[in-house]
Computed example of a mutant assay.
Amino acid sequence: MSATGFDYTITRTLDAPVDKVWAAWTIADKYAAWASAEEVVLNVRPGGTWSSVMVIPGGVRVPLTGNYTEVVENKRLVMGMDVPGRDEPVLMTLDLAADGERTQITLSQTLDTAEDRDQAEQGSNFLLDGLTTYLAAA
């Protein structure tokens, strides 16, 4: 636990160049293809908004919205997600590092409770599993 909450960080190496990984996160139809999302709208710029409907196993549809606070092409995305009952969005940082034809991706978040952290970390691992499968087939 940090002074501000409960943290997690996940780092993986993906078998795809950084520009393909960036495109998978920032182009709506590509994001929809791997993130189990529908109705994806991405306005990838600082202050831009995003929205999607996440379709979780079992078919439950979860509408999500948020904004981008930092965008550094092929390197970093900082995204806020709106959470009902919370004044400030929950931020997720995505860092990319090129390693030849591979990319190291790091996702990190700080949450208010250990339960929220554990759920977010599980969701992030699910996303990265989908991304890994998508990039292998692309």
Score class of each variant (00 low, 15 high):
P57E: 15
P57C: 11
G58D: 13
G58F: 11
G58Q: 13
G59Y: 07
G59L: 05
G59F: 07
G59W: 06
V60N: 11
V60W: 10
V60Q: 15
R61E: 11
R61I: 01
R61C: 07
V62D: 01
V62G: 02
V62W: 03
V62S: 08
V62E: 05
P63L: 02
P63R: 06
P63H: 04
P63Q: 12
L64Q: 15
T65R: 15
G66F: 03
G66V: 05
N67D: 14
N67P: 01
N67C: 10
T69C: 07
T69P: 03
T69Y: 01
E70H: 07
V71P: 09
V71R: 08
V71G: 07
E73Q: 15
E73C: 08
N74R: 08
K75V: 05
K75P: 00
R76M: 12
R76V: 06
R76Q: 13
R76P: 03
L77G: 01
L77F: 06
L77P: 01
V78A: 02
V78C: 08
V78M: 10
M79L: 15
M81A: 12
M81S: 13
M81Y: 04
D82W: 05
D82S: 13
D82I: 11
D82C: 05
V83G: 04
V83M: 12
V83L: 10
V83Y: 08
P84A: 09
P84C: 09
P84N: 10
G85C: 05
G85M: 07
G85E: 03
R86A: 13
D87L: 12
D87F: 10
D87R: 12
D87K: 14
D87C: 03
E88A: 13
P89N: 04
P89K: 03
V90F: 04
L91F: 14
M92R: 07
M92C: 11
M92D: 04
T93E: 04
T93R: 03
D95Q: 09
L96C: 06
A97R: 12
A97T: 15
A97W: 00
A97H: 09
A97E: 15
A97I: 10
A98M: 07
A98C: 09
A98S: 14
A98W: 00
A98G: 14
A98E: 14
D99Q: 14
G100W: 00
E101W: 00
E101S: 14
E101D: 15
R102M: 01
T103G: 01
Q104G: 00
Q104H: 00
I105L: 03
I105Q: 00
T106G: 08
L107R: 02
Q109C: 15
Q109R: 11
Q109E: 15
T110H: 02
T110P: 03
T110E: 08
L111D: 00
D112S: 11
D112L: 11
D112T: 10
T113E: 04
T113A: 02
T113G: 04
T113Q: 05
